[in-house]
Write a protein that binds this DNA or RNA. Structure first.
Lengths: 158, 158
DNA sequence: TTGTGTGCAAAAGCTTTGCATGTTG
DNA sequence: CAACATGCAAAGCTTTTGCACACAA
């Protein structure tokens, strides 16, 4: 318990340092808002959208604007601390990504549930297709869509 | 030339029949707008968005509304005649899909160019992950993002 | 102090919806 | 002729932008 807590703090510190260096390197300012948003994101589990993040910070009486949330999310994506997804809807979903294994997603079209999985073959495909088609592949997105057997809640997510 | 034309007509006929049966099966009406949109889509190559399709039909003095375009696109997606994509932007892209080999996409983040490729390993991954995670996988989307070497036009697409 | 970052609100862009009218079955 | 589909315009939602003020460097 104690140890888990310490590991978590250590992890957060690393993330903050990475962001901090990234800001320095690009001559961007270290504002409290940017770090507050980063901490909020790393305190979350699973996927979230920009509005949910904004609302949650507002509920904690933290004074931020949507503009800053979007701006900061983009910064975090650009330094690989956050990943942006489009799970088939017109709504960007985000996810913290530092220290987590690369993975892809399986989305239930009925209830919106998102599962994660890893498969090394993706890396092979990226490498091979990059070579063949003369592309420098930087990232990818693999989503499998379907229905989760039985356990599906059938609660449509918006 | 003559033969190619005939093959094309034959292909279009098949597609129209499929759509026609789909409409019958679901007690939906066979309106001229629906078939006009289908034909317009199958006369196109590559990917397009709903607005481009709408504008193009307007330019040909065909009287359609955006509402009908969106409605019909959804119908066509539901009977697998059209595939819907999200290439990282908040703009749905569509593509005709009958009679074309299943493929995935490689997108240039600089110029927006989209290349297609096929890889049988995707099918294996779908099957395996469906089994392991108890999902009935119906479809998928794999996008590789990167930069096209040299040939990239650097013309930002919106 | 200087210019970047922020909050706020308005605007923009894609998609959906409501309603009166038209048309299919 | 009854229900469904359409056109049009307005509304909805997510994201971006403009502007005055605040604050990091």
């Amino acid at each position: 318990m104690e140890i888990a807590k310490e590991q978590k703090d250590q992890h957060l510190k690393e993330v903050i340092n990475i962001f901090s260096s990234h800001l320095e390197k690009n001559n961007l300012r270290k504002t409290p808002e940017r770090f507050a948003i980063l901490e909020e994101i790393y305190s979350r589990t699973d996927h979230f959208d920009a509005e949910a993040l904004y609302i949650h910070m507002k509920n904690q009486n933290y004074r931020v604007s949507r503009a800053t949330v979007y701006n900061t999310l983009e910064l975090l994506v650009s330094c690989d601390l956050v990943t942006k997804h489009q799970f088939g809807k017109n709504l960007a979903q985000y996810e913290k990504s530092y220290g987590y294994k690369q993975h892809d997603h399986l989305i239930c079209v009925d209830c919106g549930k998102v599962l994660e999985f890893c498969d090394p073959r993706i890396q092979q495909i990226k490498n091979m297709m990059g070579d063949i088609l003369k592309f420098e592949v930087t990232h990818h997105s693999l989503n499998l869509y379907g229905k989760c057997a039985g356990a599906c809640e059938r609660t449509m997510q918006k």
